[in-house]
Computed example of a mutant assay.
Amino acid sequence: MTSVFFGFLHLYGPQFWSSILASYPKSVIIPWGTFIISQVGFWFWVSLLAVLDLCQFPKSFWRYKIQPLKVPTWEWYRKALWVVLQNQFLVALPSSFLLWKLMDLRGNPVGMELPTVWDLSKELIGFLVVEELGFYYGHRLFHHPKLYKRIHKKHHLYTAPIGIAAIYCHPIEHFVCNLCPLALGPVLMKSHILTLWLWITVGQTNAINSHCGFHLPLFPSPLAHDYHHEVFNKNFGPLGVLDWLHDTAGSREMAAEKKQRELAATTQAQTNVQAVVPDSSKPNVKEV
């Protein structure tokens, strides 16, 4: 995806970008461009996954299903659709205008000079740090008992998640956990708007993949977040660094191993107790 993006910039970028700048003001390019890019990317992947979920086509891909006993239905999609559209038009669209103001204050994000691979490489580190910190701690916050029932419980309706459920959540959660960590890095790094659009596309694709319910070839593994939806108290972060630091990392394999260790320890304890308890069938007296 990144190579395609920079390949396009190298071949057609200057002419394309100059025509955009000549046709639209920043007040249109930043908020509306960001919203359109996110919409196209989101519904492209969700539509492909809907065909896989609902039509089971191609059938051969179902061997990659993580929880094969839980088969998505039209009802799952219908329930998610209305909430997702509300989050996109009532939360994400207004937020894109806030993003325009913040990026404009930090510098000129729509300059004629196009971003380079080196620019992205430098800024990507900052993006990843902000995303990991913002999403992990925001996510942990919404798992607090006082907030979970009121806000985050909605997102955990899908214990076997589907792609569209990536933003099936309370609007406050969508703003705090999904939008802010993704957009704050480019704002702080004074990134070009094209870099922001690439980062949004990558981040959004990763979020959909994390919820898709399939461990598809050539895609990052979604097992960690899928497991989070199953057990709720493991794998809060997108990268896993803070999960490792706070001992909240987990997997089905780790859970099975822990269960086996606990069973072995219980069995050993029972054996030890039986070894020290005297046999009541024999008289407790010494023979003279």
Rank of each mutant, 00 (worst) to 15 (best):
V4D: 06
Q15F: 06
W17V: 05
P25N: 13
V28G: 13
I29G: 13
I29Y: 13
I29V: 15
I30G: 11
W32R: 12
T34A: 14
F35K: 15
I36S: 05
I37A: 14
V40R: 01
V46E: 01
A50V: 03
V51W: 15
L52W: 08
L54R: 04
C55L: 14
C55G: 12
F57L: 12
F57C: 10
F57Y: 14
P58E: 05
F61Q: 14
W62D: 09
R63Q: 15
R63P: 09
Y64H: 11
Q67L: 09
Q67D: 07
P68G: 11
V71M: 09
P72W: 02
Y77F: 12
R78K: 08
A80P: 05
L81P: 01
W82P: 01
Q86D: 02
Q86A: 09
Q86G: 13
N87M: 07
L90T: 04
L90D: 06
P94C: 09
P94F: 02
S96L: 11
F97N: 12
F97R: 14
F97Y: 15
L98M: 10
W100G: 07
D104S: 15
G107P: 07
P109F: 12
V110E: 05
V110R: 06
G111T: 11
E113S: 13
L120F: 15
L124G: 10
I125M: 10
V129S: 12
V129E: 14
G134D: 04
Y137A: 01
P145Y: 10
K153D: 04
K154Q: 10
H155V: 01
L157E: 10
Y158F: 14
A160I: 04
A160V: 03
P161L: 07
I164K: 04
I164G: 01
A165G: 08
Y168H: 02
H170T: 08
H174M: 03
H174F: 09
C177Y: 00
L182R: 03
L184P: 00
S191L: 11
L194N: 02
L196D: 03
L196Y: 12
L198H: 05
W199H: 05
I200M: 12
T201D: 01
V202N: 02
G203R: 00
N206E: 07
N206L: 09
H211W: 07
H215R: 15
L216P: 02
L218Q: 04
F219D: 04
H225D: 02
Y227T: 08
K234V: 06
F236G: 11
G237P: 00
G237V: 02
P238M: 00
G240A: 05
G240T: 02
L242D: 10
H246G: 08
A249N: 07
S251Q: 04
R252M: 15
R252D: 14
E253K: 15
A255Y: 13
K258M: 09
K259W: 06
T266W: 01
Q268L: 14
Q268E: 07
N272E: 15
S280V: 05
S281E: 03
V285D: 12
